[in-house]
Design a protein around this nucleic acid. Sequence first.
DNA 1: CGGGCACTTGAAGTCGATCAAAGTGTGTGG
DNA 2: CCACACACTTTGATCGACTTCAAGTGCCCG
Lengths: 246, 246
Amino acid sequence: MITIKQGNSPLQSKNKEDACDGCPVRHSSFCEVLDKSEMDKLSQITHSVNFKAGHLIVSEEQDANYLYNIVNGMVELYKLLPDGRRQITGFLHQGDLLGLLVGEEYPYHAVALTDVELCCVPKDSANKLFQDFEKIEGYLLKKASHELAEAQERMLLLGRKTAEERLATFLIAQLKRQNKDEKANEIHLPMMRSDIADYLGLTTETVSRVFSKLKKERLVEIPSSEKSNIIVLDIKRLKDVSEGLS
Amino acid sequence: MITIKQGNSPLQSKNKEDACDGCPVRHSSFCEVLDKSEMDKLSQITHSVNFKAGHLIVSEEQDANYLYNIVNGMVELYKLLPDGRRQITGFLHQGDLLGLLVGEEYPYHAVALTDVELCCVPKDSANKLFQDFEKIEGYLLKKASHELAEAQERMLLLGRKTAEERLATFLIAQLKRQNKDEKANEIHLPMMRSDIADYLGLTTETVSRVFSKLKKERLVEIPSSEKSNIIVLDIKRLKDVSEGLS
DNA sequence: CGGGCACTTGAAGTCGATCAAAGTGTGTGG
DNA sequence: CCACACACTTTGATCGACTTCAAGTGCCCG
């Protein structure tokens, strides 16, 4: 069972005017498509929000009143079955969007994995947002299709890969995301083993056992004191394992 | 192993001018956001394509030159592992989009499950499409977010549900899709058991066994001659099963 | 120092996979 | 029209990967 600290409502966490003055909004990923003056205008209708690690940001079936852009930190999305089984559907990083949806309600829970800073767009402003900044809609579409492709990759993982292949796939993906440099081989995993398990459709025990197996095979190394740091010893071979070649 | 008939290249299957004259494009789901004159204009840059059941429409890593809209019929999307393991990531129905993506290449294979008719937008026209018809982009975004929510639901299924729960979930979803009427209880499944298996992350044998179990429990009925027709005897209880309540 | 939490490791159990065979419906050619 | 082949489905028996249950370890923090 997961314990979640009570989440702040977005507006509590920071005074709205302060947030805009401090201009963290400028660092939202919207700057990829908007120029400086547009970002200034954008900051009129958005504000910054902070959540401490472990806090609930949105919950399933809660009215979707905000669209968030992760400014920094990491967020996990998950769905639950009535009996408590949990599937983490994604880890969100800087620049990712949270709350992009059709319906009235969020289709998932979102929890801050680390301390996070979010750029928060009230939903009623969203339509205005689209009118004022046409580019935004195309940008969101691009983001959404990208996520869709990732989701399909994940379905392949969950439906057809073995435990070892799943963890290898996960590590390779994290490695790619965290390093521009092709050769870099260090990964930092801010989430617990049980989060990795719920992301990969496994149990913590299995994740732990597979980590041990990968260590024994000299594919990775894990300093015993800092279990959240992984060193990949053989990227090529790990990649092969992730695709079932081995 | 799956045998796939050689797909036609889009332009072979029908004479372009004929397709537009026959105005099947008018029946593409874009009509949900465009008025008649806009649809006429749209049909200038799109054309109709037909594929016979079993034929390959697009394949993974093939250059994504077209965006398709399913006019009628059914399409399956899937990804493969090097050793042949297959995961079907979606069944597309009337109005669904095929080929909405960021990259240069399709991230999946698409095969016609039934005879299908597609509305085909060449990619170079797509940008023009967005400029001329601003509404289209918002429409695509809506479609994409909807698909994203479905993908997350599927991850929960693949990562955390039992075989019985998966099949029940699948049947309930098909029932909803095929019937406006809440009370209707007939489902037609154009795909084979092995397709259902590859969609649910199971084997054909397991799918078959679970069907037998559901029959024995009087949750469904399957006429022995028409295995593609399913009658749901107890929707409420099947729904409970799909959520792990039972 | 001790309690708690995350993680690891071990032993036993189970669900679905695999292997094998039989059943069912369809189409084809004699 | 029947017989045979083929493709799909079902059923049965066995197997194995991952889960479950149960200890045990190490680390942090009061």
